[in-house]
Structures are given as structure tokens and as C-alpha cells.
Amino acid sequence: MDNGNNVLLDIKNLRTQFFTEGGVVHAVDGINFSVRRGEVVGLVGESGCGKSVTSLSIMRLIAQPGRIVEGQIIFDNEDLVALPESRMVNIRGNRVSMIFQQPQSSLNPVFRVGDQLSEVLQIHQDVGKEVGERRAIELLTMVGVPDPESRIKAFPHELSGGMAQRVMIAMALACVPELLIADEPTTALDVTIQAQILDLMRNLRTKMDTAIILITHDLGVVAEMCDWVNVMYAGRIVEQAPVVELFKTPKHPYTVALIGSTPILGHADKPLTTIPGSVPNLVDLPTGCKFWPRCTARIQHNLEICDKEEPALKTIAPNHTVRCWLYE
């Protein structure tokens, strides 16, 4: 890839596993990708493919019985995996922050939103209570919360879904992070509110050069927001490409199906593509390619290798890699 100075985050061979009674869950199984400043990188895939665990790993928020077992997360020349927790707290919520799924359950129900917002500033920027409150009002104004002076006194349950999401975003932006991880930031919202939130994130990127990792299964949102896309399946990246190229010439059979499953306005004549079966059990993964039990391309092309040996990520065009035997 091109000039290395701009790389803000570089994930190398990350493996995160959960040691459960039922066995070891290979939630993230050796992924590599990087994010440059001011770039929006998408992580897409079905529920349970490891998208959220990847983001929690970057935030170092993997709880017991989970653990990052291998790999490096280089953030601005520092390996977050090796960093002591005492230094990680200075990065988390400050230089790297996250918007979680389900805002209503991520906010603390017994604190007023203004206090939750100014807490971030008090901790990371060492401001007093009054300044914190003033900044909280500014932040709420910035994310488009009407009447912010009275909203800072509201409790989370008094906010609608869209409002709560904006408070979450305001909180994530409080310290002007260099990297923002947005985990399904608009899934629970109306299209109109979604459009507002996406616009807000776009502004942030152009005005403050914030890099964004966007996790979603809404490919429309990906097409609109991202520069790069990583398609994940069973804890692995199966395809990596610039967004336009990915939608124009998807290579991996899984990516092809994902794109085919998205309805297009006004083209309802043919059935949507679906994939039989469901994501594999991450404790007991199939041998070979993890997608073979659901793959129709394997049958069409009569490939015998798929269930025996796992394909490697192969570069098939500049900046476009895919993990599939079809392209070997």
C-alpha cells in the first residue's frame, strides 16, 4: 500500500478467542487490515462473523473468558495489545472511541446525559464541572439534538432512539478522537435519522480528519460511507477491496450473495439471493474454506479442494484481495 506515514491503525494477524466450557470460540482468527487517517473502512458480514469482537479488541474491551491470543494492533506506532491498562485508559474514549450498538442500553440509565457527557471530558481533558457542562451543550448542539440546554438534564429513558444515538455519538466525539469505531450506528434508526447521523459522521471525517471503522450489515450504508471494505466470515476476512470495486466486481461467492440479498428500490421482480444454512459454529469450524458448506460456486465449478484446504488471501488486482479457491 502507499505511504506508511498516514497509517493510523494497522492490525496484524489478530486472533481473539473465548475460552468457554463448550470449547474455544475462534471469534477473530487472524485478520489483517489497516486504516489511514481520514479514511472510512467498513467491516461487513452476518451476525456472529467477528465484526464486533474485532472492534472490541481494538478498544481492548474483551472481557473474560475472552482474550487476544495473538497479533498486534498498531495504533500510531504503538502496539495496543502490549500496552498496560494504565496507559490504555488514556487512549480509550480519548484518541480511539466507539459508538456502540443499541444506544439505549449503552447509556447509564441512572445518570443524566449531561453528566455522562461531561464525565468523558473531566476524565480525559481535565476540565472542571462547569466547563464540562458547557462543552456537553456544545457537543449536543453539534450532533443536532434540539434544545440541548434542557436535554442535558434528561435521563436516557426520556430520549427517543435517535436522540440516544446522538448522545452516544456526542460522547464518542467529545475528545475529538483520531479513530472512531461505529458498531451498527444506525441500525435501530429511521432512514431519515440515519441519513442525518451518516452526514454527521461524514462531516467529522472531512473537518477533523477522523478515521472511521464502520461496522454494519447494511450494504447501502457501506456504499455511501466507506472508502474500503473488509468482508468478514467466520472470524476471517474473505475479501478486501475499495468500495466501488467491491460492489462492481465482487469476487468471493459470499460477497456476491451478500450484495444479491440487498433489495434495490423498484427492482422487485426477481427473488433476492439467499445463502442456505447459517454461519458455522465458531467452536467447531469446518475444515478447509469456512464457507464451503454453504457455497454454491463450489458445486458449480466442481471444486474438490474447498473442504480440504483453506485458501489464502490472494491479491487478484491492485488493492483487491480474496480468499477463495476459484481465484487460485
Partner: peptide, 30 residues
Amino acid sequence: FTKPLHPYSHALMASVPRLRETIEPEFITG
């Protein structure tokens, strides 16, 4: 779906992210 009439329908349709188009989505304020 090809041509909504009401300004609200228009705005609603314009805020849907499209997969295969590069038009910037508009949105309704408020």
C-alpha cells in the same frame, strides 16, 4: 418508487442509501 409526489415522500426516498448509485443522499432536518 420511481416518482414520489409528496415532498415528504421525496425526502424519505432520498434518504435511503443506494448500493449502485453515487448520488449524495439528502435528508430531512428536524
